[in-house]
Design a protein around this nucleic acid. Structure first.
Length: 530
RNA sequence: GCCCCGGUAGCUCAGUUGGCAGAGCAGCGGACUCUUAAUCCGUGGGUCGCAGGUUCGAAUCCUGCCCGGGGCACCA
């Protein structure tokens, strides 16, 4: 896996040869890192797409050398830009029409390496085998690569060597992107998904806003926060765990629909569905309830899948998930009753513990409160069965301190979650706007915290005050963007859909040998002296 | 925190019952003017994750540790 490079003098040969080439380039007076402004003829993929139009014309391209096939007086290279690869045909006598063949013999054949950035100019043509190519007449080094880029050779999609190790892929994501085209595509899809959501919300008249990341009081979710400190005010601050309470304040302020793509931070474990920082979409719309929000959510996700992927059907692992069909709708307690045959609210504490044990909840007696146990039971026996998009409505009130009481049952809240492929994708409420009720819920949270629930929400006085000025009835929605991207791209680790997932820090010399720059400073006659 | 799997050349990996540490690609030298995993000839390259132990002898067996991956738990 990761090797140690403790001995700088034992520089791997591929690096030594590149440093040596760099030294020679400098001696020759060739700037290996020139400042340039290149007028590219276009993207390689586009040029190749209508190659008939380009054939016989001069083109200028820039990119990285990804392959090299030296055949004596002719060399083929593959040049890669963001869009694709183009073959370069470098003929000695085309590149060097005069007697001086140095540029070809030394520069092209010896001093250029795979990974170097170059630009070329020449005629677009097809080789005998029909491969779109450029007959190179001019070639400029744009940037020398000192480390071998692990570009695997490839034939018909089959890779012969490449960057596969997940640790190195995440740690050196730039290499992952460079080497693995599908990873580059994946993050484009992520952006398309986010853009599609933004477009959908904008077109419905909702306002994108930015609220603070540094909070003096954190809230809006059950989670432990990251704690930091502001020197200027000698103040403890928290990185936000949600932006809910600020967005609601904005509706108090008169906006009727706001949303934010919120980078949230939760001080919790790291695994394939949890990164310490992640992206959440939150949306709040005045004068609406959670039934309306359910319809809106369903329509939005369906539209986003269609926009970003061109289909509403996605493959996730072994399942085909269809966002296009009408989503299932169930109720939390009814679903539990169907599975267990019991109304969990009527169970005694000991009966509830017994049930929890039976379905595989470990150490339920250690959980802070009945509702946590009920939640676990639900997670064990109901959630894993929900593969197709499913709304779960009406959660017990203890689980939802910011949601409005159910209009028909005061022990429930008007809340739904969307479960897809067995995990939670969305969470939404008819938002609580009764300041007296909200005050009481915060009190319960305060009590829960005192009893050891580390994730209980802190009492936010200012939020209550704001609500006391009058908060419009509203519906709110939260969507885990990373999870949505996972679902839509068939990825099973959150690290795959976050460009730079958090990694345990590691000294670079443990995964990358140091470059022997001293060789560049050596006087040119040093070798002769020896 | 627990369980399973892994760590061998720059990259991807093989390594038999414990018996001289290997291949392909990349590198270096050479040949080659339509190749595309170019080909051919030659060649350098290793703290086998770390530390102990068993053994005449350990990449291989044992113990501990580090790192990673997967699973469980934790995480609405």
């Amino acid at each position: 896996m990761i090797r140690k490079f403790m001995f700088p003098e034992e520089t791997p040969a591929p690096i030594l040869s590149r440093v040596e080439a760099l030294r020679e380039l400098k001696e020759l007076g060739i700037n290996p890192y020139p400042a340039v402004n290149i007028e590219k003829s276009g993207d390689i993929a586009q040029i190749k797409e209508n190659f008939e139009k380009w054939e016989g014309k001069r083109v200028i391209l820039a990119g990285r050398i990804t392959a090299r096939r030296i055949m004596g007086k002719t060399t083929f290279m593959d040049l890669m830009d963001e869009s694709g690869k183009m073959q370069l045909y470098i003929n000695r006598d085309v590149l060097c029409p005069t007697e001086d063949k140095f540029l070809y013999n030394r520069f092209v054949k010896k001093l250029l390496d795979i990974g170097d950035f170059i630009s070329v100019e020449g005629e677009a043509f097809r080789t005998k085998t029909g491969e779109p190519s450029v007959k190179v007449e001019k070639i400029i080094l744009l940037a020398k690569a000192l480390r071998p880029v692990p570009l695997g050779k490839e034939k018909e999609g089959q890779k012969f060597s490449a960057l596969r190790d997940p640790e190195l892929r995440y740690r050196q994501r730039y290499l992952d992107l460079l080497v693995n085209k599908e990873v580059r595509e994946l993050f484009k899809t992520r952006t398309r998904i986010i853009n599609a959501i933004r477009q959908y919300l904008d077109s419905h008249g909702y306002l994108e806003v930015e609220t603070p990341i540094l909070h003096t009081v954190y809230g809006g979710a059950h989670a432990r926060p990251f704690v930091t400190h502001l020197n200027a005010l000698d103040l403890t601050l928290y990185l936000r765990i949600a932006d809910e309470l600020h967005l609601k304040r904005l509706l108090i302020g008169g906006y009727e629909g706001v949303y934010e793509f919120s980078r949230d931070f939760r001080n919790e474990g790291i695994d394939r569905t949890h990164n310490p920082e992640f992206t959440m979409l939150e949306l709040y719309v005045a004068y609406k309830d959670y039934y309306w929000m359910a319809d809106f959510t369903e329509a939005m996700i369906r539209n986003v899948a269609q926009q970003a992927l061109g289909t509403t059907q996605v493959t996730y692992g072994e399942h085909t998930i269809d966002f296009g069909k009408q989503w299932h709708r169930i109720r939390f307690l009814e679903a539990l009753k169907e599975e267990t045959g019991k109304d969990v609210r009527n169970l005694s504490d000991s009966q509830l513990l017994e049930l929890a044990e039976k379905v595989g909840v470990e150490n339920p007696e250690k959980l802070p409160g009945r509702f946590k146990i009920i939640e676990k039971i639900f997670g064990k026996i109901v959630e894993p069965q929900l593969l197709q998009p499913t709304f779960v409505f009406d959660f017990p009130i203890e689980m939802s301190p910011l949601a409005k009481r159910h209009r028909e049952d005061p022990t429930l809240t008007e809340r739904f979650e969307v479960i897809v492929a067995g995990f939670e994708l969305c969470n939404a409420y008819t938002e609580l706007n009764d300041p007296y009720d909200q005050r009481q819920r915060f009190e319960w949270q305060r009590k829960a915290k005192a009893e050891g629930d580390e994730e209980a929400m802190p009492y936010d006085e200012d939020f209550i005050v704001a609500m006391e000025y009058g908060m419009p009835p509203m519906a709110g929605l939260g969507v885990g963007i990373d999870r949505l991207v996972m679902l839509l791209t068939n990825q099973h680790a959150i690290q795959e859909v976050i460009l730079f997932p958090l990694m345990r820090p590691k000294p670079v010399e443990e995964y990358a040998p140091s470059i022997p720059y001293h060789l560049l400073e050596e006087p040119t006659d040093a070798k002769d002296a020896k």
